[in-house]
């Protein structure tokens, strides 16, 4: 019962945050110095055409009324049409977002598999050579811009060594061969048993995923290391040693057990960052994800698409924050 109440507490803030998100995206969409009407009909359209299109889009009404219409459409799942693709924005997002999820998920898995053990071991041997190497590498991940790293990776592994495929999600050979089931290319290929396309997709995924993983790795490693150093100072670590436990058990069960819940927040934020902030990586690697969609839409003054994609990014943050918050309330005995 107590648990239900704490969960309800976490959920109660969601509608307020959502409203704020919708309001801000709407205002941004209306204050940018771009006229969506001109973007549709062109610079040289006669004034009466411009006025008619403006009326059709409802852009001649006062802003609060426009906002109400926007919210009403949103509640019906309608984000409008993209001028550029002439599809519904929702259709476009369903098309592009899975590719971003695929890339971000591959990256976060790599980052976790390397980053957490690296952080834990560095903390357990604080000041050792291993610790210094881990620190330098993780600061590197945080400081080198992803697009620079992406281009260097492409130059080395694709151009010079020729061991990695070039940009894009798949080889042109497989274009249109894999049906859209989840939208995640590698998974769809595996689901339909097209193993050639699967391995090709995985090879294309490798470089951008590594670039993004290295970026998150820096953050996750540094946070893990800092949390662990703090935890290892605890009196209960002396108790655990006095019990005669092995070093590994003290490290993982006692110290890591104390920080794992806190790390969920770190991981959720890193993942949200990947899902939304892959714009540069997707551009460098021509990865057909949400970031690329957002960039192209913005360059074409395609405001419905920009607003829709921004809204999705906002939703990702709210959703992952909520998950981290719920995890905290469920798994940490002190909060529970």
């Amino acid at each position: 019962m107590k648990r239900v109440r704490t969960l309800a507490g976490a959920l109660a803030s969601v509608p307020i945050t959502l409203f704020g998100l919708v309001l801000i995206t709407f205002v941004i969409g209306r204050v940018v110095p771009i006229d969506p009407v001109v973007a549709i009909v062109g610079d040289h359209a006669p004034p009466e055409v411009i006025a008619r299109v403006r009326a059709e889009l409802g852009l001649d009404r006062p802003l609060p009324v426009q906002f109400l219409i926007y919210v009403k459409n949103l509640l019906h799942g309608d984000l409008g049409r993209s001028v550029m693709t002439s599809h519904r924005v929702t259709t476009d997002i369903a098309q592009y977002f899975p590719a971003t999820i695929e890339l971000a998920t591959a990256a976060i898995i790599l980052a976790l598999l390397v980053g957490i053990p690296a952080g834990v071991l560095a903390a357990s041997r604080q000041g050792s050579r291993l610790d210094h190497i881990v620190r330098v590498l993780s600061i590197g991940g945080q400081s080198v811009p992803v697009f620079v790293l992406g281009m260097i990776f492409l130059l080395i592994f694709y151009v010079k060594l020729g061991i990695a495929p070039g940009t894009g999600q798949q080889n042109v050979l497989y274009e249109g061969m894999v049906p859209h089931i989840t939208g995640m290319h590698v998974i769809d290929a595996a689901l339909t048993g097209q193993w050639d396309a699967f391995w090709d997709g995985l090879a294309h995924l490798a470089l951008p995923a590594l670039v993004l993983a290295y970026f998150s790795l820096g953050y996750i490693t540094r946070m893990t290391r800092a949390y662990m150093i703090d935890a290892l100072k605890g009196e209960y670590i002396i108790t655990a040693r006095a019990k005669g436990l092995s070093g590994a058990r003290i490290l993982w069960r006692h110290a890591f057990g104390n920080i794992s819940v806190g790390l969920i927040t770190v991981i959720a934020l890193a993942y949200a960052n990947l899902l939304s902030g892959a714009v540069l990586t997707e551009t460098v690697f021509s990865w057909p994800g949400l970031g690329l969609y957002l960039t192209v839409s913005l360059l074409n003054a395609d405001m419905n698409a920009v607003l829709g994609a921004t809204l999705v990014v906002g939703l990702v943050y709210i959703g992952l924050n909520l998950i981290a918050d719920l995890a905290y309330r469920l798994f940490d005995p002190r909060v529970r």
Binding site: E235, T239, A240, H254, G257, N258, D332, P333, R334
Partner: peptide, 12 residues
């Protein structure tokens, strides 16, 4: 140890 508040593991 002196203080069980710190000497016991808080999440076990």
């Amino acid at each position: 140890l002196q203080d069980p508040k710190y000497a016991l593991n808080p999440v076990m």
